[in-house]
Simulated assay, not measured.
Amino acid sequence: MELNSIKPAAGAKHAKRRVGRGIGSGLGKTAGRGHKGQKSRSGGYHKVGFEGGQMPLQRRLPKRGFKSQTLKYNAEVTLAALARLGLAEVDMLALKQAGLVSQMAKVVKIVKSGELATAVKLTGVGATAGARAAIEAAGGSLA
């Protein structure tokens, strides 16, 4: 293969449709826009979701729910993830460095999912009642 022999794949290149260039082109007169109406005019179209003046679907349907913007600052860590971490003392910084919680997290809570065999000392981290019991049963503590 030479640089001067490279060609695009067959059918990859095709001429742009030139509308409104006479009847011989097959796309003259109305240029594929049909007859009259808003869509045939230059600059004549409507905004997305517009239904001709009828109340649009996105306004007919009821609004529901709420997504709290403070949730992104909360994080959860499982007992199984704590066991995999294998540290004797765990705080927020250790969890962030290990990648278990996001860098934006401000409140971290340990949840009871999985098992914990080693003693872990937690500082500045919350825990659910079940997780607290599991951590203390393994010889760990929460501060």
Rank of each mutant, 00 (worst) to 15 (best):
G114C: 13
E136G: 03
A119F: 11
V111C: 01
V108M: 00
A127R: 02
A131T: 02
A134L: 00
V107E: 06
A131R: 05
V108A: 04
K121Y: 07
Q103K: 09
A134D: 02
S113D: 06
L122P: 01
V108G: 01
K109T: 06
A138W: 02
V125T: 11
V120L: 13
I135M: 12
E136T: 15
V125Q: 03
V125S: 02
K121A: 13
A119C: 10
G114V: 14
K109D: 01
A137Y: 05
K112G: 04
L116E: 06
R132Q: 06
A131P: 12
G114W: 08
G124M: 08
G126I: 09
M104S: 07
A131M: 13
A138G: 03
T123V: 12
A134C: 03
A134M: 06
A138D: 03
L122H: 02
G124R: 07
G126L: 15
A129S: 15
L116K: 04
A117R: 11
S113R: 15
I135P: 03
G114E: 08
K112D: 13
A134Y: 00
A117T: 15
G126A: 14
L122N: 00
E136W: 06
G124S: 08
K106N: 07
V107P: 09
T118K: 15
M104G: 04
A105L: 03
A119E: 15
T123C: 07
L122A: 02
A133S: 14
A105Y: 00
A127G: 04
A137V: 06
A133W: 09
G124T: 07
R132P: 02
V111L: 03
E115L: 15
V111K: 02
E115V: 13
L116Y: 05
A137M: 05
V107C: 10
A127D: 00
V120F: 12
K112P: 00
T123M: 13
L116V: 09
A137R: 12
A127S: 05
S113C: 08
V125H: 09
S113A: 13
A131K: 04
V111I: 15
V125F: 06
L116P: 02
A137T: 08
K121Q: 13
V120D: 05
